[in-house]
């Protein structure tokens, strides 16, 4: 299993930051430093993406070569996941490195969950059998719409539906746990260092 113990963020590791805060709060001299941190007032309210503590994503996908899929299968997977989570006003599957992550996971499945691999092999074979990679964008969109139709209409069936669900589930998990999905798209505000918790300040929420 890949464990990178030597990861560094730009200036200071998070471990160091946590330790300094503990020390700062434990001493009277640290109180001045503590009061300089973002408090609830600065973090509550406001709709736009504000300051985030989220560190940059380390560059683990640079020069990534697929290990589970063939180059051709990987190409089709890139196109398919990009239809599922497109790049629009926020990053998509491409910026989140969803296809690379999926390949990495499936390769690692050999040890404890080998049953995953034939499922994904079938999904790759299916995309190959319909010539997905060779289609133009409009035809790809149309095929995904047909594959996905049983999700909203129980009367419909499609041979590709199980593969759509398989690929969507892992795409969604990969995307919303990536920096692109969690921080840049959703704007998750957790993992903060705050002096007080920003509770609800909406009078309308006190009535139902």
């Amino acid at each position: 299993m890949e464990v990178d113990e030597n990861r560094e963020s730009d200036s200071m590791t998070r471990r160091d930051a946590a330790w300094m805060i503990a020390r700062a709060l434990a001493t009277p001299a640290g109180l001045a430093l503590a009061s300089g941190w973002p408090g609830a007032a600065q973090n509550a309210g406001g709709g736009a993406m504000r300051h985030s503590n989220a560190p940059p994503e380390r560059d683990r996908w640079k020069d990534y070569r697929p290990k589970f899929f063939t180059i051709a299968q990987f190409g089709a997977l890139r196109m398919f996941t990009q239809v599922l989570i497109p790049t629009d006003e926020t990053p998509g599957a491409r910026e989140a490195h969803v296809p690379e992550f999926i390949d990495f996971v499936l390769n690692a499945a050999a040890e404890y969950a080998p049953e995953m691999q034939p499922q994904w092999q079938k999904a790759a074979d299916y995309l190959d059998s319909v010539g997905f990679a060779g289609m133009n964008a409009a035809n790809q969109e149309a095929l995904v719409a047909e594959m996905a139709a049983p999700e909203t209409d129980p009367n419909k069936t499609h041979a590709g539906f199980p593969f759509y669900r398989l690929m969507k589930e892992m795409t969604v998990r990969a995307y919303y746990t990536s920096r692109a999905g969690l921080v840049e798209n959703l704007g998750y505000q957790g993992y903060a260092y705050l002096t007080e918790f920003p509770g609800c300040n909406h009078p309308e929420h006190h009535k139902v």
């Binding site: 299993m1 890949e2 996971v105 499945a109 040890e111 404890y112 969950a113």
Partner: peptide, 10 residues
């Protein structure tokens, strides 16, 4: 490495 989900099956 696995975005919090762990190595599959582990």
């Amino acid at each position: 490495p696995f975005h919090g989900q762990g190595q599959p099956g582990l």
